[in-house]
Nucleic acid binder design. Structure first.
Lengths: 327, 327
DNA sequence: CCGCAGGTTGGGAGCGCTCCCGGGAGGGAG
DNA sequence: CTCCCTCCCGGGAGCGCTCCCAACCTGCGG
């Protein structure tokens, strides 16, 4: 029950290993007739290329890596991860979870040393600067950054911010506060700038409060915002979980959503549809992000020039959590 | 800037490749003095073993696989995935997301054919029966199953059900309904049986309603349960998201939680802590599940006999969503 | 002083694949 | 008919490592 190798096929077909290799890889150097015969024999022998042998010989590992930097208790990229992976398709993705950035760098170095991966995806800008030094082709999810050797693929937070805020402005909202958290696959600074820029253009009074990395602070921060002087009539939350927390916090204060305050999530998810009122949310093309990223890593590994890429525009999905501003 | 190989080390140390291999792998057959010298040279040359070469030679791939079966729009294993991965530690995990079971089987077959992985983790009982036929060592997360060749590692739903229901019974609850959904790393039937058995033991009236695979039905199902004849005073939800949906559904009906109805989630997560009232929940040792599973796959690949394993007991964490039954 | 056991070491054959090189066959031109 | 050029294909050398086997060396007892 040993698995067949190209040598077996070669013997069976009465040709050499080399010919089989060429035939099976659709490469010139073998006549069409022989190619047919070889392909047929390979099929009936149930042959499949050994990825390890191919990797050894070719010098490539045939896999890309992704390290998730997960400090204990942080809500993070999880629900988005599967969307991303879906976009990656059949590319082999080596995944590892580590507690912090140093550990992440260590993993990248190890992968590089052991030649386990050909390139990596970076879930955040955290250690983008070090990757060229390590010598591993890398693509950053969420950007754009301006590290020369490390292209990024991102979703435009500018158009998302514009769409959200225009929508809120049209509903009569004038004071909006953003609850900033740890958003997946987004560059924190870029998002902050996009938000304030869009608000400025529309003449809105817009503030931002931060929950820090743990999101635990979500409800507390939200309540403080809503009970402060001149509270906002609309809240923009960086993540779906933060938005759910905001909903809960508002209700605890006896405020109606969207009657007294509107809430929109800068991240759509099934969770947004399941709470009541259902959350209006920005839907980002994460699967597309994944497939673009995979293609970029491939190109990078192939030695091609790769530039920053922006995925298609995010869309605002309106549901029950947003309504006219309380006058 | 070429990376050093054992041949380089051998030349440098004036010994043969074979000796270097033995020395670096801590294997007998080389004197302690030589081993020291070789280790030292390897260190200063910055040598790291090539995983691909090792895999080719050793016949093992040095990685285990996990296929996530994700029908569009299903809430699933995501938040738990990272906990699981954390438990896996530095073991290389090849991950792929597919739409359905057939695709999952296809991936397993491909991995097996290409020798990409040595063994796989199964996120559910779905295709456990086929794996021995494919010839890939596999461990099922969530069980126990009784497929001979496929051991499982699971968290005991029996003690979880007992703890939850005893707690609810002590609060005076007599009618409990379970909202059954797609729980991660749990065997649906085992969980159902554990629930009804524990309820029977305590003399509770316990029912179960199903949301199907999409969880979208969560709010609707919950409302139907709560507005039916003789509504339950407590709800047990299979997942955290379902529990949040239940909270929202209850509130929409004007029912107070926990005043009118208590809610407990059969899955803890940060989300449970962020909603209001915070959700009482069962916390399962998922990281432990991961490390156990990784060890089991390793043993299985090594050809050892592996039996079903049960992780340490889950714990009920009580928060604000549970209280005395309405009399 | 010789022989032998036990421990060390060198040499080399794979693992399955890729890719280069050169020989041979076949066909068109001279 | 011969020469040369073009295709095909066989042979074989790696890729970096593991592991077997034989040769070696040491130290011991006879």
């Amino acid at each position: 029950m040993k698995r067949p190798t190209i040598t077996d096929i070669a013997r069976e077909a009465g040709v050499s290993k080399g010919a089989v290799s060429y035939a099976l890889n659709g490469r010139p150097g073998v006549s069409e007739a022989t190619r047919q015969r070889i392909t047929e024999i390979a099929r009936e022998l149930g042959w499949a290329p050994s990825s390890t042998a191919r990797a050894l010989s070719g010098g490539r590992a045939g896999a890309i890596g992704l390290v998730l930097d997960r400090p204990p208790d942080v809500l993070g990229a999880e629900p988005f991860l599967t969307a991303l992976l879906e976009g990656l398709g059949p590319a082999s993705l080596l995944l590892q979870v580590v507690p912090d950035l140093d550990a992440e760098l260590a993993v990248h170095r190890r992968w590089r040393g052991e030649r386990k991966v050909d390139g990596v995806l970076l879930a955040g800008p955290g250690c983008a600067a070090e990757l060229p030094g390590i010598g591993l082709p890398a693509v950053v999810l969420g950007g754009p950054l301006d590290h020369p050797g490390v292209p990024s693929v991102w979703v435009d937070d500018g158009v998302a911010a514009a769409e959200m805020l225009e929508y809120l402005a049209a509903l009569g909202h004038r004071r909006v506060v953003r609850i900033a958290g740890q958003a997946a696959f987004a560059h924190p600074r870029a998002r902050a700038e996009a938000f304030t820029a869009a608000a400025g253009r529309l003449g809105l009074s817009a503030g931002t409060v931060h929950t820090g990395r743990t999101a635990e602070a979500g409800p507390g921060v939200t309540q403080r915002v809503l009970t402060g002087p001149r509270p906002p009539t609309a809240l923009v939350c960086d993540t779906d979980v933060l938005a759910v927390a905001a909903l809960a916090a508002a209700r605890e204060l006896g405020l109606a959503v969207p009657g007294d305050v509107s809430v929109v999530s800068w991240e759509d998810s099934p969770l947004c549809r399941l709470v009541r009122p259902a959350l209006s949310a920005v839907r980002r093309p994460l699967a597309e992000l994944g497939s673009l990223a995979a293609a970029m890593v491939r190109d990078l590994v192939a030695g091609e020039e790769v530039t920053d890429v922006c995925a298609s525009r995010p869309r605002l999905v309106t549901r029950g959590s947003t309504g006219p501003a309380r006058s």
